[in-house]
Amino acid sequence: MTELLIPFEYDYMLRAMGISALVGAVAGLLSCYVVLKGWSLMGDALSHAIVPGVVLAWLGGIPFAIGAFASGMLAALAMAGLRGRTPIREDAVIGVVFTGFFGLGLFLLSLFPSNVRLQTIIFGNVLGIADADIIQMAIIAVVVALVLGIWGRDLMLSLFDPVQLVAAGGNPSHMRVLLLMLLAATAVAGLQAVGAILVIGMLVTPGATAYLLADRFGRMAAIATFIGAATGLIGAYASYFLDGSTGGSIVALQAAIFVVVLVFAPKHGIRASRRAAAHAVAEPVP
């Protein structure tokens, strides 16, 4: 029994669990907006597109978060620029741009194969993060949470009914850019917790799960935030014993919760839908 408490005795474990819970919570909150906007592919694209920025920032000796964010924004600009100017469909544009950026990132990384810090950042290993990088992640998470605290309602309105936001004197395209920036920033923070390939899981799965459980945005946001925080904490904790991939355990745990909810959710689950359909058929016609 006491063996299970060992991770709590190490400072580095406490830090790892704390930061992955924090990043998980913020990514979970943001995932609600991603899911409702239908931006899973965009999130995937951004989280891959930040990789070359990480390597270049390291080469230039600037904080990796800044390089990563800049690289994500550059990719978003490239996608926006191409969308209006070619007859190619949007998903193809996104696919080309993000694999291009990711490929460049992996190539740059392969030039420095022995750099453990870069490997840690890009492939995600929450137990091996440098303190300076933990601080960067924490700052990003807090800023994203604050921004959502201020503009979250406008953002939600821009997803539900952008014209009403206009009627209220707001601007939906500002909200689009804001969501893009929050997505890139959160991907930067999530990168080190789970790695570039799995970040998208944290940015979609909690929101998708919560969507099945809630009929109000506030509840959905609370559930997704909780799932993100809990899985982040448990994933980091488990990786002490499993000696396996932290990212893998966090994202796989989220997916497992999703599957359970998908089947058993009281209202929007598969079983509930079947029951409701059977009930409707059995009901006498009035």
Binding site: L36, L159, F160, Y211, D215, R216, F217, M220
Partner: peptide, 8 residues
């Protein structure tokens, strides 16, 4: 309008 959006 997206009638399945989580709003009351």
């Amino acid at each position: 309008v997206d009638w399945s959006f989580p709003v009351g």
